[in-house]
């Protein structure tokens, strides 16, 4: 478990103090994939780098598995870092060493006996699917392959925690997906807690259990990914959500609409379309879909529909109440005319 307690990080710059991280409190449970999102400069990297003390916090505590890292220095801190893996946006591999040597470097940091080294390197390469690249130099690898080496290096000493700083931001969508799947697999099979930062909501949607949204060094919203996606509270969070669940309907279409426009959301197992067709049958109204999608967040469906309902205003009202009764969240965007 990771407990971040009242953590602040100030940077002294020419233009005065900059609050990189501003009194952040977070608790991340064991085995969880925790995502931190925010725009550039929000303080995501600063916060993440405070977790393994690459950046020494100005104040506050970082507790990893009951150990307050901010109290450690030198050799003790180095030992603690062996159990915290980290991967980076630009991989940061040693360019003059082969893939195997890069991984062995991490193993040597933990004084792994020589005879165990080779087999462990092979094991790690198998895990990340790069067995055939053992003796190749990083320059000969693709971005995705480099990140796999980064992951193997980070996992070398069986860490309990993996920190990912924009680990997929330099990769194309397909490669991103394959790296995210690998991270998910690592999380499930090795029970490694993952903290990742990103500015892409799709990454969060894909693999995170819980998330926090950061702005100006502060956490403005925190919760389960599903809850935040279905019910974002902070303005910034809504903005981020709309980047993946957007409901842009052309104005010309909206102008033609004569009925009421409602946004209907179905969470979890409520079968959205069934409810809507039942409503149409029961209440003498007509429904037209303007937009709709079902997103799967952590394999739980989240249905979102934008629809026009035509009919007598009373019927529309009753229809809405009916849908709400069956578990939908309905928001009237525009009343009919």
């Amino acid at each position: 478990m990771i407990r971040i307690n009242d953590l602040s990080k100030e940077y002294k710059t020419k233009n005065g103090l900059v609050m990189g991280v501003d009194r952040v409190n977070l608790t991340i449970s064991e085995g969880e994939v925790f995502g931190i999102v925010g725009y550039s400069g929000a303080g995501k990297s600063s916060l993440l780098r405070c977790i393994n003390l690459l950046e020494r916090p100005t104040s506050g505590q970082i507790e990893v598995n009951g150990l307050d890292l901010t109290k450690l220095k030198g050799e003790e801190l180095r030992k603690a870092r062996l159990k915290i893996g980290m991967i980076f946006q630009h991989f940061h591999l040693i360019s003059q060493k082969t893939v195997a040597e890069n991984i062995a470097f991490a193993l040597r940091a933990a004084s792994t006996p020589r005879e165990k080294m080779t087999s462990r390197v092979v094991e790690l390469l198998e895990m990340v699917g790069l067995t055939d690249k053992k003796d190749v130099f990083p320059a000969q690898l693709s971005g995705g392959q480099k990140q796999r080496v980064g992951i193997a290096r980070a996992l070398a000493n069986n860490p309990s925690l993996l920190l990912c700083d924009e680990a997929t931001s330099a990769l194309d969508p397909n490669t991103t997906l394959s790296i995210l799947r690998l991270l998910k697999k690592i999380n499930r099979e090795l029970n490694i807690t993952i903290v990742l930062i990103t500015h892409e909501m799709n990454v969060v949607k894909e693999i995170c259990d819980r998330m926090a949204v950061m702005q100006d060094g502060r956490v403005v919203e925190e919760g389960s990914v599903y809850e935040i996606f279905s019910n974002p509270k902070a303005e910034l969070t809504k903005e981020f959500i709309s980047s993946v669940l957007s409901f842009e309907v052309p104005q010309t279409i909206l102008d033609k609409v004569t009925g009421s426009i409602v946004k209907v959301m179905f969470k979890g197992d409520v079968a959205g379309e069934g409810v809507i067709s039942d409503m149409v049958q029961h209440f003498e109204v007509r429904g037209n879909f303007l937009h709709g999608s079902i997103e799967y967040i952590q394999e739980v469906p989240l249905g979102l529909f934008l629809m026009e309902i035509q009919g007598h205003p009373d019927n529309i009202k009753r229809a809405i109440t009916y849908m709400e009764g069956r578990g939908a969240q309905v928001e009237v965007i525009q009343n009919g005319h």
Binding site: I84, F88, L93, I94, R108, A110, A154, N157
Partner: peptide
């Protein structure tokens, strides 16, 4: 970043210099 990655992995100062 490469130096930082070595620090993060828990390498000793001597390892970082040499490797």
């Amino acid at each position: 970043g490469v130096i930082e990655a070595a620090v993060a992995v828990g390498a000793t100062p001597w390892m970082i210099i040499k490797d």
